[in-house]
Design a protein around this nucleic acid. Structure first.
Lengths: 249, 249
DNA sequence: AGGCAATACTTGTATATACAAGTTGATTGT
DNA sequence: ACAATCAACTTGTATATACAAGTATTGCCT
């Protein structure tokens, strides 16, 4: 009998084969991160150091670091070193931004992303929901277009201002509420907005978190010729669990 | 002025540096997939073939294939070859299953996952929601435990049966409704279930899809010592957009 | 024709090497 | 004291090689 593809999922609980060297190094790194030995932004051993510690070639040590980087656990910087990713660099906030890279990777030309950042009048409800004072909340929106003007994606984020590094603000263009609405209007209908606010309440319940819990909200809506695909995420930064997501075309 | 970390996000629209060789190969592969030249399950040129076509070393060709595999675009099988990933192998359904791999990768022992598959009485509402006849719907649940019994994750999936390959059924243990409820009871409270059903409606609105549209629903809830993190996804398989997500510890 | 073994091809792991390019800190000269 | 230069270290790209291990086909023998 021929085994159908995908059925060869050997139950990983009974793995007697000795693990590969790069796997051992990956586990070593993960254990140090999980135990708190290496906190956020901590420098992890360089390729050469791992080469000596584990008596492997540089390419083997490199593979471990590269795979953990692909998983978002580490961050590498040419010339500087490899570091434990921070919550921010692992969060949806940054992962969603990488969609821009994914698009260009597949050869599609797309306009430089249009970044809009502004303070908005905060409803009392929203302030309670995010457990924030007025000046601590930042509304952050981003639009991507293809070269022909076809909209790809609109993002709207309500973010705790203390989570946004100051230098990031310099890259944003502050616009008036009127400018924002006129640029977004072709994309989003008012009805959707209303529904989104309603859904907000119930997602909170679905997540089993109190409305007064501090949280990072990312709301995402993506357009295509076929229709609309959307995703809403609520992440509690207090927990050690990091919820990441990405969209693949 | 010192550049803060993360600010060195060179706008990828003005990249004059000639791309790396492995990048060119990646684009070549992506273009053939996007144009439909290489459909799902199509065999991609092997490492040796790419080596000759692009006049690079095997390791360079290999890197292109590996990175696209990490992105879920390709699927590799030792001895057989590299293939374009199918919708199923890219979908949330399979990606969520990989959480099990991620856990063991980080050195945590965990029990073999408990798989429960059963036909359930379908409410009329649910049948309309999924646009399915009675015998086409499959309820599929999965529970992960740590070795000490601490629950990690419960998944509940209502899936179009035609999307589930037949051979997959052989791996599942069919249990009675009573057995299921008794095993799930310690994990999920009734109140959460009620809220989930309510949220279902509003997520549908948030996604701007009709309730009669065929869709694949994945509902996920994850436990930790700190609290509960959960994610709900609705994907329209009719569109060419594939929505993937994963959870990182 | 059926079963079996050898073979060719594929991906997986691992090493060794070379140079390019970015970062950091120390040294040196003004 | 300041600035420029240099050296050391880091990651990025690329090649060449070797063997292990899984898959599929071919062809031989019964």
């Amino acid at each position: 009998m021929m085994t159908p593809p995908g059925n060869s999922q050997n139950n990983s609980s009974t793995k007697k084969d000795k693990p590969a060297k790069y796997t051992i190094i990956k586990q070593y790194i993960c254990e140090n991160i999980e135990s708190g030995e290496w906190p956020q932004n901590a420098k992890v051993p360089s390729e050469n150091e791992l080469t000596q510690q584990f008596d492997v070639s540089r390419m083997t040590a490199r593979r471990a670091l590269q795979e953990l980087t692909a998983q978002g656990i580490l961050v590498r910087s040419q010339g500087a070193g490899t570091f434990v990713a921070t919550f921010k660099s692992q969060s949806s906030l940054l992962k969603i931004r990488n969609i821009s890279d994914e698009i260009s990777e597949r050869g599609h030309e797309h306009k430089a992303q249009q970044l809009l950042l502004q303070s908005i009048p905060i409803t009392e409800e929203l302030a309670i929901l995010l457990n924030l004072k007025n000046n601590e909340l930042v509304f952050y929106s981003e639009i991507l277009h293809f070269e022909n003007g076809e909209p790809i994606q609109l993002e709207q984020r309500y973010v705790n201002a203390s989570l946004v590094p100051e230098y990031l603000f310099q890259n944003f263009t502050e616009i008036t509420s009127h400018e924002y609405l006129s640029s977004v209007a072709p994309l989003t209908e008012a009805t959707h907005e209303v529904e989104a606010v309603l859904a907000e309440q119930h997602i909170c319940q679905l997540l089993s978190i109190e409305k007064t819990d501090p949280c990072l909200q990312v709301r995402r809506r993506t357009w295509s010729k076929q229709g609309v695909v959307s995703l809403a995420i609520l992440t509690s930064p207090g927990s050690k669990y990091r919820l990441g997501s990405h969209l693949v075309f």
